[in-house]
Each structure stands twice: as structure tokens, then as C-alpha cells.
Amino acid sequence: MSVILSVHGLRFAYPRGPEALRGVDLEIRAGEVFAVIGPNGAGKTTLFRVLTMFYRPSAGEVEYRFRTASDGSELGLRRRMAMVFQDPVLLNASVWENVAYGLFLREPLPGRLRVRLGHLARRLRLAVPPSKLEARVERALEEVGLSGFAGKHARALSRGEAQRVALARALAVEPELLLLDEPTANLDPPNVLLIEEVIRRANRRGATVLLASHNIGQVRRLADRAALLVEGRIVESGPVEELFRAPGSGSIREFVGEELLT
């Protein structure tokens, strides 16, 4: 299997903070679901922020090997990824605007104007067929089970709905690498299952998924391989079924708890 992301000796320290990443090595394979597990403050979110180029690493390197990397520029690479955050961060606008956001970023001006004109025309009761962009938004909303929510304001959503909108927004741009930072934290069981199903489908359609999670059950259900991050270092990694097989290594046992090993 080809490698989509390879990370070597990655280090990062927050200004005036302790070193949050202390030499991380990782190889993510194209098409897999890779889980990063670890205690609070281990550096999972920080790792994702460096991988999405929100922060520059202080040492080490990340190599992106996307199939469709347009021009190899930083922006070109970034546009092959999308991230969903621990807490859904939605724009102060309708659900539709939120899901369309990433697509609009990539759409040249004429295309954007065409979509806006189409909206206007439909408001005047003219029959305008949906553009490609609109079709994608619609599909992404269907994907997360929120078809009827397009016109609703993002502020008027429950937490579970908001997280599903955030997921739809990431899926709409059809990323090669989907980074999910504890996407089901603080959600009720039905929403957790729903989101897991969406992740599975996105993965089946070709997205490589990097998942940070505290939920060992979820990692078992979704991930092919996993790594345990502790204090900014990967202390254990491998296929999920091996990683969680009893008796397990000391660090895994300590993090997961005896009873969860099989």
C-alpha cells in the first residue's frame, strides 16, 4: 500500500509553552483509517495542527504524497486535506453557507457569481438547475442526514447537528486526507453511530482518515491501525487488533485499562 503521509522527527513547542511534540514518526497509508490515541494533553490536537500546516514544526518534516496534489504549493497541498475539530466551529451563517464554504474557497469568481445569481433567480421563482457546487453541498448534507437543514442558521443547531454540519463541510471538498480530532466527543450514542457510519463511507469512497480519539471502542470499530501518543512521543503503534490484544504492552495497558484488552 502506498504511503500518503510520512512524518519524521516532528517537533513543536508553543511559544512560552512546553514542547508538545517531541519527535513524532508516522507513516499513514493511502486509504486507511489511522487512529491516534493518547491521554489529555498528549499532543494529538497539536499534531493535527502541524499536519494541516496551521503551525510550522520546529524540527522534522512532513511529506505529503497526494495522488492529486495539483501544483505542490502549500495551498495546493492544504486543499487536499480537511479537518474537523473537537468542538464544532461553524460560521455565523446558514447551514448551507457553512457546508459550501470550502467549495467557495476553491471556486474561481465566475463560478461563485453563477451560484449567487442562481440563488437570486430561484428567489424570483425562475427554474435554475443546481450547479455542480450546489449538488455537492446537497450530497454532503444528505451524507450526514441533514438534507432539510440547508436554510437553518448554524446557531440554531444542537451540538450533534453542528458536528455533523462540520463533517459535511469537510466532506464536501472531497479531501484525500480527512483529519478528525475527536469528532464524537460529547455526543450522544445515536449521533456517535451516525458519525462513525459517515466516516466509514467517506473512507470507502477513498478518503484516508486520521482520527484522534479517546474512545477505544470507536478506534476498534473504525481504525485499521493506531498509535499511542504520550507526552508528545509515539510510544506504541501497529494494527488495531494487535495493539489491543491481551496482555498488551505496558503503556497500552496503562492507557486502555486491563478489561478492554481481548
Partner: peptide, 18 residues
């Protein structure tokens, strides 16, 4: 405006200006 908005924009492929 929440710093997270800027980060979300970045993570979805916004250029600096966007």
C-alpha cells in the same frame, strides 16, 4: 471573533487573504 474561526478557515483550504 474566535481564533478558532481563523483556524477552521485555514483547515478547509483558505488562502491567507481568504
Amino acid at each position: 471573533v474566535d481564533q478558532a474561526v481563523s483556524e477552521a478557515a485555514h483547515s478547509l483550504g483558505a488562502s491567507r487573504l481568504q
